[in-house]
Structure formats: C-alpha cells, structure tokens
Nucleic acid binder design. Structure first.
Length: 319
DNA sequence: GTTGAGCGTT
C-alpha cells in the first residue's frame, strides 16, 4: 500500500506512484509516467552505494518486507539500447524484450467447484504451496456474503501458474479445477485488437500508441468520433490482447480499462477516425504472421485438462 | 441452515 517516490534521474523532483495492494509496484504504472523505463534504483544513505530494485513478471518489489518502499527516493533505469521504436530496421534486443515480457506475465485464474466454506485465506494458503500468491479471492453474493463457489487466484510466477493449471486440486474436501477465465478466451474477438474503455478526451491516438507499444507493435489506433469514452488499439501480434485484459493501465494519469474488442462492438459507419495505419508495416497481413495460429500458442492450451477432458463430475463422491 | 454449473473487477 501507499506511494513510491520516483524521479527520472537521481536528484530530480520525485513524483508519487501508487503501489498495489500487495505492496508491489507494477512496471506498467512506472512506464505510464516514464515510458522507456525498465527498472528502478536507489541510493543507500550510509554506504552511498546504489542498489537495484528486484523486478519480476512486470512487478517491482520493495527492498524490505517490513518497511516496504520506505522513504527511499527511487530513480529510473533505462535500457542501454534505447533507440526510437520506429527504427524497425533491425531485430534489436528492445523489440525482443517487448515481445517476450508480456507472454510470461501472470494473470488471474478462475477456481471452479470450491466449497462454500472456503475463504480467501484458505484459498491462498492452499495455492501458496505452488508459489507466491499475489491474489486469492472468493466471489460472494453482494448482500448475503455467501460464497458463489468460485474464486480467482493469481500467482507471482508463470512457472507456478503453469503447474497449477496442469492438475486438479482437492480444496476443503472438494475437487476443484483451475482454468484460464473465459474473459481471456478467443471468441468473437478481432485478432490483435483491444477495447480501451474509460478514456478521457485528452488521450489522443499518439498517447495510446506510445503507451501500448511497450507490449508489442501497435499497427492501428481508432478513436471514434464524436468522442464516446473509448477507443481501439490493434497489435501486430494477435495474442497480445489476451495478456492485457484484467490489468490496470494508467495513461496520462487516467485509469483506462482494457477488454476484448469483439465483432459486436464494431465502430459505426458515419464516424471519423482520428488515426489509423500510421505505421505502414510490411508485416501487417495477419495471415502471413507466424503468431497468428492461436492454437499453437501455449497460453491457449491451458484449459485442456488431461485429467478431465470431457467434464467429469469432479465432486460426485464428496459431501 | 439448503445448492454444484459457471466466469469477476470494491
């Protein structure tokens, strides 16, 4: 909880960035203010040594478990190869980093079939045997507080996430399955396209392109006119969108909401488009792109449970 | 206080 004091360079006036509930600072939060920033450092007052902040899976961890981020004044680290992103003539390390980082990032997993007595706490404790649990919550009825029998869990490491998805789990006497939420599925979505809700009018196409370029190459930005409070961003790689849903994204200090752009939400005919196809990339043909085969991607095979491929009644013998 | 396929954002 709380805020982290960060400036671009050591000695500059710091700004306060909000930390997450678990005390971590999201790289996306950091990059919303310092777009090219890849990490944080701070100086130890006593020894004058500079220390780096631990970072993993898009999250930055405070130096101390007890005192959190403390009163340190953090400053940004930038990649050495910090060329303009439009310099697309070489497959440099920047481009590779931007492609692989979101692929390995964890996301919420849904836990189905939970006992009505299972709590956030017992859910967390159960999954902690697999790795750091960033979030564990039971979904409850708003008025009665009664559990709905399912919940969400999020891990700190992709490895733990993979291991959990590969098996069934006996939690509080019930066999439960852990799946990728259908909200991340690939139903009617337009390949590579995301819906960006809660936009404000001062967020223009260039702001959106600049922000979302950290996750992959952006090939189109559409802001419906007249302004309707949302916009669309399309990536070259069609699997990028499902890695962004459910995240908080802060652009120009505004918390926007990224969700799927499906075919029901096609822009109206009689509207202007502020910007599109600003990046005429030769690889714009989705069919030609090797990443276009969704099924080939491991992230799309999570729900194929080898134990119960046909919906076996998991809790038949219980209770 | 009961139930048992699903899919949330406080």
């Amino acid at each position: 909880m709380g805020f982290v004091q960060v400036s671009e360079k050591e000695g500059d006036e710091p700004i306060e960035l909000p930390a997450e509930e678990d005390g971590t600072l999201l790289l996306s939060t950091l990059q919303a203010q310092f777009p090219e920033c890849s990490g944080l450092q701070y100086r130890i007052v006593e020894t004058k040594a500079v220390r780096g902040v631990r970072s993993n899976e898009g999250r930055m961890y405070s130096p101390s478990e007890e005192s959190g981020w403390g009163e340190h004044h953090y400053f940004c680290v930038f990649p050495k190869k910090n060329k303009r992103q439009s310099d697309d003539n070489s497959e440099n390390s920047v481009a590779k980093t931007k492609r692989t980082e979101p692929l390995l990032r964890c996301f919420d997993l849904i836990v189905l079939g939970l006992s009505y007595k299972t709590t956030d706490q017992t859910l967390r404790e159960f999954f902690e045997t697999y790795g750091d649990v960033v979030k564990a919550e039971i979904k409850r009825d708003n008025t009665s507080g009664q559990s709905k029998g399912f919940g969400f869990v999020r891990f700190g490491s992709y490895d733990a996430q993979m291991r959990v998805l590969s098996k069934r789990h006996l939690i509080d006497g019930r066999w439960c399955e852990v799946k990728v939420p259908s909200s991340r599925g690939i139903g009617n979505q337009v390949p590579g396209k995301v819906f960006v809700g809660r936009c404000t009018e001062d967020i223009d196409a260039e702001d959106l392109r600049e922000y979302f370029s950290q996750f992959g190459e952006v090939i189109e930005v559409v802001i419906p006119k007249p302004f309707r409070g949302f916009s669309f961003v399309t990536f070259l790689d069609p699997y990028i969108p499902q890695l962004l849903w459910g995240e908080d994204h802060i652009i120009k200090g505004v918390s926007v909401r990224v969700s799927s752009a499906d075919k029901r939400v096609v822009p109206k005919k009689n509207q202007q488009i502020q910007s599109n196809n600003f990046n005429m990339h030769p690889g714009n043909n989705f069919r030609m792109h090797p990443a276009n085969n969704f099924v080939m991607h491991p992230a799309n095979n999570f729900n194929m449970n080898p134990f119960y491929p046909h919906g076996y009644q998991m809790n038949r013998a219980m209770n």
